[in-house]
């Protein structure tokens, strides 16, 4: 079976030739359909660059990158936009919702650029918001929502277009621990129930253990890559029992 993502010898250099600073040096990575994995590494390791390339926001300087067997390393900006629109759903650390738009309008956003009709967009957006438990918040604006609720809307936006890949950049980085658990539970559920591949970038080992495979990157190279050993996987607890007991 063909892998969903296939990076071969991918390097990325910034700056002018000669003075170029390498951010990635010969990365090989294969991700199968339906995987749930974390890319981990210290800051400056190149994991953001890797994520931008996987998400088709950027192109490798050398090497090839195939999504579902299609080489996207040489596509134009607009062609990459079309790939992002259909294949990739982004979830950001800072949510990146449009403040003037309602939850539903935010979730519709990728569908607008796919050219869907208003009715179709509304329906798909509502369904996606129901999946993340935000079906009762359709007309709320981001400012009226908590951080966790905003991230749920962002996940709904990522899954609304039925992508092959969800790319989450430090998705719990701006949330408290308990809300973070809820968000991770949604990723695990979306991965298991919808079969969508989820790639998370994080530096938190605990969050890493909530996915089934960890790719460790350092100085632009993959230094470790493997499935989580049996028994290490942590199911995220949507409603962790309070430590001291109490009114619950």
């Amino acid at each position: 079976m063909k892998p969903l993502l296939e990076l071969t010898g991918v390097s990325k250099f910034y700056g002018e030739a000669g003075l170029a600073v390498p951010a990635l040096r010969g990365v090989d990575l294969r991700v199968g359909a339906g995987e749930l994995l974390s890319i981990m590494g210290p800051s400056g390791s190149g994991k953001s660059t890797l994520m931008n390339i996987i998400g088709c926001l950027d192109r490798p300087t050398t090497g090839t990158y195939l999504i579902e067997g299609r080489d996207v390393s040489t596509l134009s900006g607009d062609e990459l936009a079309a790939i992002r629109n259909r294949k990739v759903g982004f979830v950001f650390q800072t949510f990146n919702l449009l403040n003037r738009s309602t939850a539903q309008e935010n979730v519709e956003l990728p569908l607008i650029y796919r050219g869907l009709s208003l009715g179709q967009r509304r329906r798909q957006a509502r369904e996606a918001l129901e999946v993340v438990g935000m079906g009762h918040r359709l007309t709320h604006r981001p400012a009226q929502l908590s951080g966790g609720e905003q991230q749920r809307v962002a996940i709904a936006r990522a899954i609304a277009g039925d992508p092959s890949l969800i790319l989450a950049d430090e998705p719990t980085g701006n949330l408290d621990t308990r809300t973070g658990e809820e968000i991770m539970a949604i990723f695990q559920r979306v991965n298991a129930e919808l079969g969508v591949t989820v790639v998370q970038v994080t530096h938190d080992p605990h969050r890493g253990r909530q996915t089934r495979r960890i790719v460790l990157i350092r100085d632009g190279r993959i230094v470790e890559d493997g499935p989580l050993p049996d028994g290490e996987f942590l199911a995220a607890a949507p409603e962790p029992a309070p430590a001291g007991g109490g009114a619950q």
Binding site: A81, A82, N85, L109, Y113, R114
Partner: peptide, 10 residues
């Protein structure tokens, strides 16, 4: 940036 990330072309 958000619009472009979710697939808006130039």
């Amino acid at each position: 940036g958000v619009r472009k990330a979710v697939g808006a072309r130039s």
